[in-house]
Design a binder for these strands. Structure first.
Ligand SMILES: [Mn+2]
Ligand SMILES: [Mn+2]
Ligand SMILES: [Mn+2]
Ligand SMILES: [Mn+2]
Lengths: 222, 222
DNA sequence: TATTTTATTTAGATTTGTCTAAAATTTTAA
DNA sequence: TTAAAATTTTAGACAAATCTAAATAAAATA
């Protein structure tokens, strides 16, 4: 239906729009996300515009059409299902799944997606805690907050996911045994640099900077 | 490392050489296998020759180098492992696996191949009975013969695989409940058209033309 | 408001993989 | 052994995706 590159552009635009909370996306942002030149982006958005996958207003950026969103959401769905497979079935660690899923997401077969979804037990979240769109493109919502915003001492926090997916960040958390499904107690807030100290079930104390704590999503029990 | 198209050419050349029992492969054969023009093949073999993946003698065809064979065998390995996954884990029927495996085989990740192999229990044959090369490129050999060559009446035949993979042929066999792992008794040979009659365990009688019987591989217990 | 900085588009070029048509070479057959 | 048929190569073109450099427009700032 669409080329791998077209799909990647649509996904990039979708992600930028999400992050911004604003559907209009400019050329530079796409170029940065895709790691290409602005000139290449201009070429591509012209093509995508002709195919009615986005609205393009010269010099003022683009926004995805209904069709464009559908493609992006389907790609996101496939990406995240594959990440679950790699992690849960094949035993990849959560810092290893993304790059491979980036390739697998482009395999074209509706039957494959359906069967994979079923095989995995219709998971609602990927190994990083991101929601997996269903076949209609709708997500499961859940309440979550950045760990940095937990301000009640002795709170029990349940790790739900992370904001960033870069391998070095995930490896760092892995070493600290911080990953979705784990529970910790917040035992200290350091005011002057806003860092936070956790206690693991095994009794280990873990010190996290504000920057790190801000990139971890938790469910907080009181 | 190599493009998807380069990989497909190398695989095509490998397969033709195998079928021929002769390593030198001509342009026309490659063009037919790939569904492209001879001119395109000439372009591509020049590139593959520059990359030392094959030896090319103008007007007299090509033969794969050691490196070229390695790429082809690795691709074959991935293709067949994915077919096992699709069939055994996801429940695809054997006529549905090939086209999807044709895409999955190009995903680049040695870790993925290793983990998949392990997850599947290091299978030695794919759903069509074709041997899966191991990480070093060597196959498991087994004794098999075309069903058309079984000439002893009341032989028990055990289905091992098929010669052709086209969907319509596999669907036809599926309807007759002929697939790897099944056992039949040969109850009749018709001389004038060399067709053959089988008896299934369920008591069904199945009539097969010589053409069909020639494309089915079996293990024969006397 | 005028100027500088930043973003965007255009122009022209390159690589990959493909095609058709024409020319060259090899193979087959008379 | 020559003529016809088949195969292979070359030439020239095209679409997709990219680049750099130059031109243009918008946004920021003095
Ligand atoms: Mn990912
Ligand atoms: Mn991708
Ligand atoms: Mn196959
Ligand atoms: Mn392929």
């Amino acid at each position: 239906m669409f080329t791998e590159t077209e799909e990647n552009y649509l996904k990039a635009i979708y992600k930028i729009a999400q992050k911004q909370g604003e559907s209009s996306v400019n050329t530079k942002a796409i170029a940065d996300e895709m790691g290409t030149s602005s000139a290449s982006v201009t070429d591509m958005i012209k093509r995508l515009s002709e195919k009615k996958l986005l609205q393009y207003e010269k010099y003022y950026g683009v926004s995805l059409s209904k069709d464009g969103q559908k493609v992006a959401l389907n790609l996101l769905r496939k990406h995240r299902l594959w990440e679950v497979f790699l992690h849960d079935s094949l035993g990849f660690s959560w810092d290893e799944v993304h790059d491979v899923a980036e390739q697998l997401e482009h395999v074209q077969s509706d039957l494959l997606v359906d069967k994979l979804d079923q095989f995995l037990g219709f998971p609602k979240f990927d190994p990083h805690g991101d929601p997996i769109p269903n076949a209609n493109g709708s997500f499961t919502f859940r309440n979550q907050m950045p760990l940095s915003q937990v301000r009640i001492k002795n709170s029990k926090v349940y790790i739900l996911g992370v904001r960033q997916h870069d391998s070095s960040f995930l490896k760092y958390l892995n070493d600290l045994k911080i990953r979705p499904g784990q529970t910790f107690e917040v035992i200290q807030f350091i005011e002057y640099d806003k860092s936070i100290k956790l206690l693991s079930k095994e009794g280990d104390q873990i010190m996290l900077s504000e920057k790190i704590a801000d990139a971890i999503f938790v469910k907080s029990n009181n």
